[in-house]
């Protein structure tokens, strides 16, 4: 259940971030776009995994192994 809730929260963050900067994005250069998109995705992923770890869905050690090897 927490996976669904965390994903929904992550989705909301992505949507608001994208809507807020949509106009600037359409005229921005490649580097600015890259920073914006990757930044937005990174922020969302951090929030997603923070909720997942804090609620105990996956232990920190397991996640570390996955990220290190994946």
């Amino acid at each position: 259940m927490m996976i669904v809730v965390s994903s929904a929260i992550m989705g909301a963050l992505l949507w608001f971030g994208h809507e807020a900067l949509a106009d600037q994005l359409s005229t921005a250069g490649f580097l600015s776009r890259m920073v914006f998109v990757l930044g937005l995705i990174a922020a969302s992923v951090i929030i997603y995994f923070a909720i997942i770890i804090l609620t105990g869905v996956v232990s920190k050690a397991e996640l570390k192994t996955m990220l290190k090897r994946g």
């Binding site: 992550m10 989705g11 949507w15 994208h18 776009r33 914006f36 998109v37 937005l40 992923v45």
Partner: peptide
């Protein structure tokens, strides 16, 4: 499977244009 794919699906559905453009 759910842990890794559900957030990816959400991202692709919500900001596909930004990802494809990049």
């Amino acid at each position: 499977a759910l842990l890794m794919t559900l957030p990816a699906a959400v991202g692709f559905v919500i900001i596909p244009d930004a990802i494809v453009s990049l």
